[in-house]
Amino acid sequence: MAKDSTVKETAPEENLLDFADVVNKQQEVAEKDKERTPELQIVTFLLDKEEYGITISKAREIIKVPDITRVPQTPKHVRGVTNLRGRVIPVVELRTLLGLQASKLSEHSRIIIIEIHDRSLGILVDMVNQVLKIPISIITKPPEEVVSTQTEFISGVARLDKRLVILLNLDRALLYNTDNKK
């Protein structure tokens, strides 16, 4: 490890409880390569066996699934609301939004609390996988076989060795929720 060099340009520090260690390690590893190519730091998670990723700067924290209260007259992709330390946070069923079956909760299910445009929302995922730094160069346009219906929320695909991580554009996905109503 290059101990003498200091971290200069990294993504904004995020307080991601479960992953602080992993992040640090990743940052150290990434330092070597940082001269070469700009990078993107992402959180990856599973939905129906596929691996998805969002940029880490959007994620505030990851929590186990608490009680979710159903809300009358909501679109299908809104599972309900939950109480996060005294705040009422909507929980979005990402699977429904992507045209998948609504999820059954398991012990691995998690809610990723994200913040966009002053709004806090929780997205329900089957399992959180890891925090990764990926060089932007490996991101490509989504191939057709991955993208079935909801292309508009997918900003790209990252190929890592044998893995394929689908990158989601949450801004678009969540703005879609509100704009689509009227």
């Binding site: 809300v71 009358p72 007259q73 909501t74 679109p75 809104v78 609301v81 109480n83 005294g86 705040r87 009422v88 946070i89 909507p90 979005v92 709004r119 806090s120 929302l121 969540l174 929720n177 509100t178 109503k181």
Partner: peptide
């Protein structure tokens, strides 16, 4: 009274939530 996210704009029966 806690306000609701705009995602619930269609829920005409409710105007807020409480804990």
């Amino acid at each position: 009274v806690k306000g609701l996210d705009s995602i619930f704009a269609d829920s005409y029966t409710i105007f807020g939530a409480t804990i």
